[in-house]
Amino acid sequence: MRNVLREWQTELKQTFTGTREEVPPWVPRLAAGDDAGFHLPGSAVWAVHGGMPTIVAGIRALLMQALHPGALAGVHDHSRFREDPLGRLAGTIRWIFTVSYGSTEAARSASEWVLRLHESVRGSYVDGHGAARNYAANDPELLRWVHIAFTDAFLSAHKLWGRPIPGGPDAYVREWAQAGQLMGVDTPPLTEAEMRRQLDNWYDNGELRCDERVAETVAFIRDPPLHPVLRPGYRVLFAAAVTSLEPKYRELLGLRTARLGPIPLPVRLATRMTLAVVQLALGRVGPSEKAARDRLQRLGYPS
């Protein structure tokens, strides 16, 4: 069992951080800085982003983001997600944890770095109504879509498999709106109800679509090039992401909940067990949170 956990730990670190090192080089730098940053211990953001359901949330966010043809065009045309999917994942995780746990300067710098990368991401796509449109990754509409799809995914997964959120779901949406603002989203939603309303507007207005490109992306997300030791657990987590989707988005993506003939499989229980094993392999408190606590202790914040 110990050897299995050690192998899981090694491959999970490689998957999430892009390195087999004990701690990625950027993590210790989260202990630097002269202020508390945007989020503190006891916040809704720390509660959600410090939990294992974030793994399910990441899969759900990728599925949802694929439904906007403009967002998908940027990934399809400019990203190396096929050649280096784990590298792209590691970059996203680095930004999330830096904004969640880093100082104000670190969070702003990380977001500005991502926005600079986006400056060259431009092209054209066919929208949900069949009209040709130009896009830029830093377009306000696309930035809003990515932010809301992310927030919705992380909140939904945590509500299913996580612990109570300090202040409730609205607190998470309100706190993580700061990340949206850092990424150029003007007036991001501040409540769960408003977030859902804005998300559903894209669906109701026919802005979302599923075509061959979406189907290709979904197939890749369903079966990414993971190490064999991780594949059984990933199948459970993918099924969890599909289960967590609202039926209308699941149908639009061409996905179905896991079943054995007419009998639904116990995905929620299997997911809880899989996440428990992942937590056993990685530990209850991640290195990013530990680095942030070191900074806060140095600055005199209470433990």
Rank of each mutant, 00 (worst) to 15 (best):
G128T: 04
P164I: 11
Y101I: 05
A107M: 07
G128Y: 05
A136F: 10
H129Y: 10
S100I: 01
G162S: 11
G130I: 02
S156C: 10
A132G: 13
I165E: 14
A157T: 06
G102I: 03
R144T: 05
K159H: 05
H129A: 14
D127F: 12
G128N: 05
S109C: 01
S100E: 07
R116L: 07
R133T: 09
Y101P: 03
D139V: 06
R116A: 08
D127M: 04
A137T: 08
V126H: 01
G162E: 13
G130R: 10
Y101C: 03
L117A: 11
K159S: 09
S156D: 12
Y101H: 13
S156P: 01
E119D: 15
D152F: 11
L160Y: 08
S156Y: 02
F150H: 12
R122S: 12
A136Y: 06
S120R: 14
G102C: 07
S100M: 05
H118A: 00
V121Y: 09
W161C: 04
L115S: 01
S120P: 00
E105I: 02
S124R: 13
R116P: 00
L115N: 02
S156L: 03
L115P: 00
E105F: 02
A106H: 12
K159D: 08
W161F: 07
S109P: 00
H129E: 13
E141Q: 09
L142H: 11
S103M: 10
V114F: 07
R122D: 07
E119A: 14
